[in-house]
């Protein structure tokens, strides 16, 4: 026990301030404040791998490490879609995962958000559409925000999650600064 405490003390606090969102100047507040204000200190996320190569999963895992400390921001990954506000989907959607993805989405209570994580989830990426994949997540369920990247870095993931939970008016891009995310207008009503 003494060694554990000593190591904790020696390591110190590694958590960094949350990054500014991709469009600097548009949202001046720090990510943490924005999320806390919008969500009242709680965002529950459910992740579904719909056919990814596992690289996006590694970076989503990294959000939980002490540097990004996503739980410290009030964001939690949950085990059941019934507890989730947001669905993070990775991968080009393989045809074998379509039913599981649809059922996971249907099991989430309204209102719900869907974030497509990684280039494959946004466009189908290198795998495209074929006999085995149906490509972008938006071909299966409505997507609110897309986070590009192969894989997106943890910082880009945090930025994209913020974009999804912010009111649209706050996010109109200013200037030509490239951003990793794109927001979609969501059709009303669920397909299920």
């Amino acid at each position: 026990m003494w060694h554990i405490l000593k190591q904790i003390a020696r390591t110190g606090i590694k958590t960094e301030p949350a990054p500014s969102p991709a469009t600097e100047g548009v949202i001046g507040n720090r990510l943490q404040e924005r999320i806390l204000r919008t969500l009242g200190r709680a965002l529950a996320i459910r992740h579904v791998d719909a056919g990814s190569c596992n690289a996006c999963e590694l970076e989503i895992h990294a959000l939980a490490n002490p540097y990004y400390n996503i739980e410290g921001l009030g964001i939690r990954f949950v085990a059941s879609p019934r507890h989730a506000d947001m669905l993070l989907v990775t991968g080009p959607v393989s045809r074998h995962m379509i039913v599981a993805l649809q059922r996971t989405f249907a099991a989430m209570p309204d209102p719900k958000l869907v974030v497509a994580v990684g280039t494959c989830a946004c466009t189908g990426g290198m795998f495209g559409e074929s006999y085995a994949t149906i490509g972008a997540v938006s071909n299966v369920i409505p997507v609110d925000v897309q986070i590009e990247g192969c894989p997106p870095t943890p910082t880009q993931l945090l930025q994209g999650i913020l974009v999804a939970v912010s009111p649209p008016a706050a996010l109109r891009p200013r200037g030509d600064k490239a951003s990793a995310w794109t927001r979609h207008s969501r059709e009303s009503g669920d397909p299920f």
Partner: peptide, 10 residues
Amino acid sequence: GYTHKGIEKR
């Protein structure tokens, strides 16, 4: 087989 993406065909 759930993540079968047709890589060999690709």
